[in-house]
Design a protein around this nucleic acid. Structure first.
Length: 214
DNA sequence: CTTGAGATGTTT
DNA sequence: AACATCTCAAGA
């Protein structure tokens, strides 16, 4: 580090504005549906693969606890090897493979030892678009991070990153834009067959980066 | 724009 | 046998 650049220098203060501090663990230490709603507008940042990419979250789903039959940690499954990260520390990541080929990124929520999480379903690309276009093979920009499998692909997240703490490189979430409650829509979760009527999917109304707007 | 089928590996 | 999905091709 350069000795001419003290922590109190204007440059240091300015850079802390450009790169806000990651969300603290207490942010995640709340009911899953609350966290899912409040993650809209937050920024997920990845330096996996050596280049920084980032997106503003526009769509999430809450998996709220053992009584949630659609959850990987629903009561009938108990605690297993796969869902164990959901019992972990709030603010860590739970990554799993779906349909044998797509990784999905979840944020662990609520209390430790209580299995709950938020699936990140879509984001608006804001940084590192060139790398994401390569990872997504020439897709239009609005589709780079649209859908949970695509989002993971754009961020280069895989099962290796399971349980990573989301407050530090190479993968973290920081505050982004403030999303007013009037901008938020809620509806049934996608691709599940249990608890289909629970409105636990949240998205930014009208945003073209959302996977499905209904 | 929509619909439908196939890919693919882990979990129960 | 099901699965918290995606892509491509074909049709409207």
């Amino acid at each position: 580090m350069d000795s001419t650049e003290s922590a109190a220098s204007p440059r240091a203060r300015r850079s802390s504005l450009v790169a806000p501090a990651p969300l603290p663990a207490d942010f995640y230490r709340r009911p899953s549906d609350t966290v899912a709603r409040e993650l809209l507008g937050a920024r997920i940042v990845s330096e996996l693969g050596g280049v920084r990419v980032a997106g503003e979250i526009v769509e999430t789903e809450a998996y709220v606890g053992p009584h949630d039959a659609a959850s990987h940690a629903a009561e009938r499954f108990g605690r297993t090897n796969r869902n164990d990260p959901m019992f972990g520390v709030p603010g860590t990541v739970y990554v799993y493979l779906i349909y044998g080929m797509h990784w999905c990124v979840n944020v662990v929520t609520d209390a430790e030892e209580y299995p709950a999480a938020v699936l990140l379903r879509a984001a608006m690309p804001v940084e590192g678009l060139e790398v994401m276009r390569e990872r997504r093979m020439g897709r239009p920009d609005r589709e780079l991070m649209r859908g949970p499998g695509n989002l993971a692909r754009a961020l280069a997240v895989t099962g290796e990153h399971n349980r990573h703490v989301l407050d530090r490189p190479p993968l973290w979430i920081a505050p982004g834009r403030e999303v007013a409650i009037e901008e938020v829509n809620a509806g049934p979760r996608i691709g599940i067959t249990q608890a289909v009527d629970w409105p636990l999917r949240f998205w930014v109304a009208g945003d073209p980066h959302v996977s499905k707007s209904v």
